[in-house]
Amino acid sequence: MPVYNAASDTSHPRQGHRLADIPVHDPFVLSHAADQTYYLYTSGTPRFTDLPRCGVLMYKSTTLTEWEGPYVVFTVPDGAWAHPQHGTWAPEVHEYKGKYYLFVTLHNEDAVIADVPEVWRKNHLRGTSIAVADSPAGPFVLLKKDAPVPPPSFMTLDGTLFVDDAGRPWMVYCHEWIQIADGTFEAIPLKEDLSEADGDPIHLFKASDAPWINAERKPSAEPSVYVSDGCQLYRTKGGHLVMLWSSYNEQGYVQTIARSASGTLKGPWEQLEPLVYEDSGHGMLFRTFEGTRLLIVHQPFRMPDSRAKIYEMEELPDRFRVVRAREDLHG
């Protein structure tokens, strides 16, 4: 019996989806205590759905075993810097000061930043924008329509919210290997209302800092690139600042983790052993209403085969560790 493609029909949300039914890339779960509901966000594109333009899909659940949706909570509007047909990557929703903020990477492939031979590979406008809503169910409205939040001359992606110990909000994002070959992680301060940047970006670390990546490298005449993807930041119960991030090894996508030695964004950052291999990554942590820490990733990388996989995690004083795959939640 064929599996129902839960993301293809956005006009008729339905109940009873299992995670195995839902094509998902860059999954993000918001545990919303006010209504005891989990909200799962993922990309929606005309290529895989009936949407006329790119947007963000949401599914909701009270059990994590059965999901209702999809609901369209955002579409790329006319008059924005981004092209409505060129993609919505890595959507995530954060509750902040009584509002809900969608961070989503948008694109405009027609807006060329630099082209060969000036650069080794064509660069186009790509970066994370922020939209706001009164509810985790949207609809979300862009705060800044003329450009992404990071510098528009940078090719960036996967921006996330981080609030430092002084209460200052930041966007932490990935700087594309397409532009700089060795992808990096950077952070830019935000205005209090998250409407736009409020200062210059700072460098955190580069993808090639991971020893497990360099251990596999062999001399070659081919360009050597290092992918930086999917940053998410957390405080452990011991007060350590850690970052989940993803890249590639010889077998495919990898979910890994880094730790700041200073406990601040400025680091220095030390690279820990990866958490999940098997072409899995772009993960984030959320907590169940019963208090269990879970990691959600997508696996395999390529759509439309990609599905969400959930792992139960142990929180140690200075890191997180995978306990087991939660096959009971996959369906």
Score class of each variant (00 low, 15 high):
195 S>Y: 07
156 T>Q: 01
51 L>V: 09
28 F>P: 02
258 A>R: 03
40 L>V: 10
191 K>L: 10
82 A>V: 00
154 F>Y: 15
296 I>Y: 15
127 G>V: 11
72 V>Y: 09
209 D>S: 14
299 Q>A: 15
240 H>I: 01
149 V>T: 08
224 S>I: 14
67 W>F: 02
243 M>A: 14
322 V>P: 08
217 R>E: 14
44 G>C: 12
155 M>L: 08
320 F>P: 00
138 G>V: 03
111 A>G: 02
252 G>R: 05
262 S>P: 12
168 R>Q: 15
299 Q>K: 10
37 T>I: 07
285 L>I: 15
129 S>M: 01
298 H>K: 11
311 Y>N: 06
282 H>C: 11
4 Y>C: 06
96 Y>L: 00
110 D>M: 03
97 K>H: 05
150 P>L: 02
31 S>Q: 07
314 E>G: 04
212 W>F: 09
22 I>P: 13
177 W>D: 04
86 H>M: 06
92 E>T: 09
146 D>T: 12
45 T>Y: 11
294 L>E: 11
44 G>R: 11
157 L>D: 00
300 P>H: 14
296 I>P: 14
321 R>D: 09
303 M>W: 12
253 Y>G: 01
210 A>I: 07
270 E>N: 03
225 V>H: 12
154 F>K: 08
162 F>A: 10
20 A>G: 15
313 M>E: 06
1 M>A: 08
77 P>S: 07
70 P>H: 03
21 D>T: 07
152 P>W: 05
237 K>T: 07
5 N>E: 12
319 R>C: 12
276 V>N: 01
149 V>M: 08
173 Y>I: 01
123 N>R: 11
133 A>P: 15
309 K>A: 11
327 E>P: 10
5 N>I: 06
289 F>Y: 03
49 T>K: 11
312 E>T: 11
85 Q>N: 04
71 Y>R: 14
298 H>N: 13
189 P>T: 09
37 T>P: 03
38 Y>H: 10
64 L>H: 14
228 S>Q: 08
139 P>T: 05
74 F>D: 05
275 L>E: 06
269 W>S: 12
24 V>G: 01
49 T>Y: 07
83 H>G: 02
206 K>T: 13
130 I>T: 04
243 M>V: 01
175 H>W: 11
204 L>T: 12
256 T>E: 04
259 R>Y: 06
174 C>A: 15
43 S>V: 06
213 I>A: 10
282 H>F: 07
284 M>P: 04
78 D>V: 06
